[in-house]
């Protein structure tokens, strides 16, 4: 059971995530967008959207800190367990709370504003449910484990994190997850569900963060392309033609 949940499913999800994105990008560049609904309503969005997005950016950084960086690295730079714990609870808690408030407002807005709800696809609804569940469970782990100290102490950095890293160097350690508290297990499971649907939702816009904008020249020039129509010429269908200059 634990092999299925913490070895097979993660690799399947990882494969769907990567192959799904490649496929979606090649098949559906036109559909690769934020699908903003600002035009329909912007009074709620003006507050809720930055709250959610900046919140989740910090949550993401927190996860990089907790999952990607091994404990002995932070030990090596002399960061004490207490300092790490304090940072994780305070920054993580605030960021998580902002994310949750933003998401709640956004979902409320989506449900109550007629035009926005009409523009919501079934995929959007499933994605919102998964996203909300993941965030709620994550926040619950932080609050229950870190603040209320329910169910005894659990250091995820020697448990969940090591399992997470083990997936990526192909020596999975499912036992670590099997021993983790239920809250962490559920958080990981719902997160995997979210990652599996990710390439097929509007969440793909995460991979379009336009950082290049900071360096590129203001005005972009392009030469009219020689290709026919709007699609690339498929290989093997070259026209009989004089060679290109």
């Amino acid at each position: 059971m634990s092999t299925l949940l913490w070895v097979i499913v993660p690799y399947v999800v990882l494969a769907i995530f990567i192959v799904g994105h490649v496929w979606r990008y090649r098949y559906d560049k036109f559909g690769w967008t934020t699908r903003s609904s600002q035009l329909y309503e912007d009074r709620l969005l003006r507050w809720a959207s930055p709250l959610f997005h900046f919140g989740i950016l910090f949550v993401f950084l927190g996860h990089v800190m907790g999952l990607v960086i091994p404990k002995n690295w932070t030990d090596a730079i002399g960061m004490s367990e207490e300092l790490y714990h304090f940072l994780a609870i305070s920054v993580g808690g605030i960021a998580g709370f902002c994310t949750l408030v933003g998401l709640t407002l956004l979902i409320y807005r989506r449900r109550t504003t007629g035009p926005v709800f009409r523009a919501t696809t079934r995929m959007d609804k499933a994605m919102y449910a998964a996203l909300a569940l993941v965030i709620l469970l994550g926040l619950w782990n932080t609050v229950a484990g870190g603040v209320l100290n329910l169910g005894g102490h659990y250091n995820y950095r020697t448990g969940v994190s090591e399992w997470w890293r083990s997936i990526f160097y192909f020596q999975p350690k499912p036992d670590l997850m099997a021993q983790a508290p239920l809250g962490f297990q559920l958080h990981a499971m719902t997160a995997m569900a979210l990652f599996a649907m990710w390439p097929f939702t509007r969440l793909v816009h995460v991979f379009s963060v336009p950082l290049f904008y900071l360096w590129r020249p203001y005005v972009v020039y392009r030469s009219r392309s020689d290709r026919l129509g709007s699609r690339n010429q498929p290989r093997g269908w070259d026209r009989v033609d004089t060679p290109r200059r």
Partner: peptide, 10 residues
Amino acid sequence: FGEGSGSQTP
């Protein structure tokens, strides 16, 4: 994936 997704007509 919603309005206008999928490959394009030339």
